[in-house]
Design a protein around this nucleic acid. Structure first.
Length: 113
DNA sequence: AAGGTGACAGTTT
DNA sequence: TAAACTGCCACCT
């Protein structure tokens, strides 16, 4: 990944960076916001390249629809994601966000419409 | 150029 | 009820 100016990746990063601190969202919500419909997989794929991005992308705030930290393994350390979220006031147990729905932040609802 | 991949989601068996 | 399958779309080899 050298010169990925792909609007898609950049767009995903932009949305993720808009996630307020202490909030989390799902891949599907981002996908829908990007008009890619159910291609939530692509969001995850985009996050795969989110490492080393500047400004940094709070990928820890992006989890699957179950509130499960599926991508924790992609961080520097499997515990990094959880620690970051806990640092923002989000409680996590067994890699799952507690009261996920309460912390859920939907770009379609919070940003647009 | 074609096929395979991927940090998901929704539907059906 | 839980488990399995398919659909999704862009990126990579």
């Amino acid at each position: 990944m050298s010169k990925d100016q792909s609007s898609f990746f950049n767009d995903v990063y932009d949305v993720v960076r808009l996630i307020p601190e202490g909030r989390v969202t799902s891949y599907g919500a981002i996908a829908k916001y990007l008009s890619i419909g159910r291609a939530a997989r692509m969001v995850g794929w985009a996050m795969n390249a989110a490492h080393g991005q500047d400004p940094p992308v709070p990928a820890q705030r992006v989890v699957n629809r179950n509130g499960l930290l599926t991508g924790k393994h992609h961080f520097e350390s499997p515990y990094t994601m959880q620690e970051l979220l806990e640092s923002e006031g989000i409680k996590i147990e067994n890699d799952q966000i507690i009261n996920f729905k309460n912390h859920f932040w939907d770009p379609n609802t919070e940003l647009t419409l």
